[in-house]
């Protein structure tokens, strides 16, 4: 038995069972236990997720083109983008580090964006395929999202450590700012998506079979 068929849902904060008035999906009820707003489904989940996703795709381009950090020495300034960092470590045979940086700052954001696009499209199409796997994908995006912040912290730590009073310094570049925005936007996108939407066509799917 699914909760929506009985006009019930659970509070997003305390998981108490709440009855939501039936008129429309965006009707508000208040949780009797913790007083938070309760909707049948997160309001405008699909639209909001699309909006955050598009924003993150837009920010992802300058994040990869613009330099993450500038190494300032008396010989001149050198700029590093994400990919040039990965190539540098490949050349110096530090494969593990190259792998970590590549995974955290290129592979994970792209994977997250692709997974969310797939989830959104399949929900909008009302697909009945692989519902359990899709739910797992959603949980995955929620878990791995924060780990992309690694690159921002690497830049921060380098800025703090390589600071020899004007002789040699590392400065954060614009790319790092955009990268930060990508991480925040993808996290917000994952948060505003409602996994219950994946299962909402259960009746139709059962009828088809």
């Amino acid at each position: 038995m699914r909760a929506i068929e009985r006009g019930l849902t659970n509070c997003p904060v305390c998981h108490a069972i709440v009855k939501v008035p039936p008129e429309g999906m965006n009707e508000v009820a208040y949780c009797p236990r913790c007083d938070s707003e309760v909707h049948m489904r997160k309001p405008q989940a699909v639209q909001k997720t699309w909006a955050y996703l598009i924003a993150s795709i837009v920010f992802f381009i300058p994040a990869n083109i613009l330099p993450m950090m500038h190494v300032v020495t008396f010989a001149g300034t050198e700029s590093d983008t994400i990919m040039s960092g990965v190539f540098y470590f490949m050349e110096t045979k530090a494969y593990l580090i190259a792998f970590v940086i590549f995974t955290a700052s290129i592979f994970v954001p792209i994977l997250k964006i692709l997974i969310l696009i797939y989830l959104l499209l399949s929900v909008q199409k009302g697909s009945c395929m692989h519902r359990k796997k899709r739910k797992k994908l959603y949980v995955l995006t929620e878990i791995i999202g924060r780990w992309s912040m690694v690159d921002v912290y690497v830049v921060g730590t380098m800025v703090a450590l390589v600071h020899f009073g004007g002789l040699t310094e590392i400065k954060a570049g614009l790319g790092a700012n955009f990268f930060l925005l990508v991480v925040i936007m993808t996290m917000l996108a994952a948060m505003s998506f409602d996994p219950k939407l994946i299962w909402d066509n259960t009746k139709e799917c059962n009828a088809k079979q």
Partner: peptide, 11 residues
């Protein structure tokens, strides 16, 4: 206790 799954809405 009754629980509603926060992922799939099953009671």
């Amino acid at each position: 206790h009754y629980y509603i799954c926060h992922e799939c809405d099953e009671i």
